[in-house]
Amino acid sequence: MSNPPLSAAIGAYITTISDILRSAVTRRRPWFELFDLSTISRPSSLSDATVRGRKNLSYFCANYATMLVTVLAFSLLSHPLSLLTLVSLIAAWLLLYIFRPPDQQLVIFNRTISHRDALWILIAFTFSVIFFTSVGSLLMSSTLIGFGIVCVHAVFRDPEDLFLDDTVLANSGLFSVVLNGSAAAPTVVSKV
């Protein structure tokens, strides 16, 4: 039987996630623009590489985030036991902490566990699963591989055909899609 506050919490959570994903999709640039081979060149110096990286990360932030998630997804799909472990861990957090009202007591083996105690148990369980199984190394290695691919592309793609305002460049970044999910997409103007 479904609890009305629980279904409202799940609905609000799903709405927030869909709003963030919708915002990310609207910020995504065309993939052919990202992989245009005529824009690939070696940076002349370290400062040029830094400027290129910042401009490309700001302009292609949603595309780069998609690339990171894709590398992570392929890595998890190639290791089904790690994927099953991670899904079980996420399900435990959702059922035992996020969707459970704070005033509702959890009873396990005739022992009452408060919301705060459940949080500490889940933190300890998450720590042990991530650091004492292969899940942590898999997540770390696939994230580093994805981040390496993104950084190499951002440094070697010449952003001369892109133009961003300094305020947009300062207020955006690779994770601005997630952090500022409800904000409007940055204004991008092409050079003539």
Score class of each variant (00 low, 15 high):
Val189Pro: 07
Val189Asn: 10
Val87His: 02
Val51Asn: 13
Ala185Met: 03
Leu72Lys: 01
Leu84Thr: 11
Ala12Phe: 09
Leu37Glu: 01
Leu138Glu: 11
Leu96Val: 07
His153Asp: 00
Asp19Trp: 05
Ala170Ile: 11
Val178Asn: 01
Ser190Arg: 14
Pro5Gly: 03
Lys191Ser: 10
Val168Asn: 12
Lys191Cys: 07
Leu164His: 09
Ala73Met: 14
Pro30Thr: 10
Asp161Cys: 05
Met67Cys: 05
Cys61Thr: 11
Ser82Val: 05
Leu76Met: 14
Arg116Glu: 10
Val25Ile: 14
Thr187Phe: 14
Ala65Tyr: 06
Asp166Val: 14
Ala170Asp: 13
Ala185Cys: 06
Tyr59Arg: 14
Val71Arg: 02
Asp19Asn: 11
Phe32Glu: 05
Ser47Met: 08
Leu179Val: 15
Val135Asn: 04
Asp103Cys: 06
Leu96Ala: 12
Thr26Tyr: 12
Arg29Gly: 07
Leu81Pro: 00
Thr70Cys: 04
Gln104Gly: 00
Arg28Ile: 08
Asn3Ala: 05
Val192Met: 09
Ile17Gly: 05
Val178Leu: 15
Asn110His: 06
Ala118Asn: 03
Pro4Glu: 03
Leu84Pro: 01
Asn63Met: 10
Tyr97Met: 04
Cys151Leu: 15
Ile14Lys: 14
Met1His: 04
Ile98Gln: 07
Leu169Asn: 15
Ala65Ile: 10
Ala91Trp: 11
Arg100Met: 08
Ser75Asp: 02
Phe35Thr: 01
Ala49Phe: 11
Val87Gly: 06
Ala92Gln: 12
Leu57Ile: 14
Ile40Phe: 00
Arg100Val: 07
Thr70Phe: 03
Leu139Gln: 03
Pro186Leu: 11
His79Ala: 13
Ile10Gln: 01
Phe147Lys: 00
Ile145Leu: 08
Val192Asn: 07
Val192Thr: 09
Ala12Tyr: 11
Thr39Val: 13
Ser137Gln: 08
Thr133Trp: 03
Gly148Pro: 01
Ala184Tyr: 08
Leu179Gly: 07
Arg100Pro: 05
Phe175Pro: 03
Val152Lys: 01
Met67Lys: 01
Ala24Asn: 12
Asp161Gly: 12
Pro159Trp: 14
Val192Ala: 13
Asn56Met: 13
Ser58Asn: 15
Val177Gln: 08
Asp166Ser: 15
Ala92Trp: 10
Asp161Tyr: 06
Leu37Met: 05
Ser47Val: 10
Leu162Val: 15
Met140Thr: 14
Thr187Glu: 15
Phe163His: 10
Met140Ser: 13
Phe132Tyr: 12
Gly173Ile: 03
Ile40Gln: 00
Leu72Ile: 13
Ser114Arg: 07
Arg29Ser: 12
Leu95His: 03
Pro80Ser: 10
Ser128Lys: 08
Trp31Pro: 05
Leu68Pro: 06
Thr66Gly: 08
Phe99Val: 05
Leu37Ala: 11
Leu21Ser: 06
Gly136Thr: 03
Arg27Gln: 01
Pro159Gly: 14
Thr133Met: 02
Ser182Trp: 10
Leu139Ile: 09
Pro43Trp: 00
Ala184Cys: 08
Ala118Leu: 04
Ser78Gln: 02
Met67Thr: 15
Leu139Phe: 04
Ile20Pro: 09
Ile20Cys: 14
Leu84Lys: 12
Ser2His: 03
Arg111Ala: 02
Arg52Asn: 08
Lys191Thr: 07
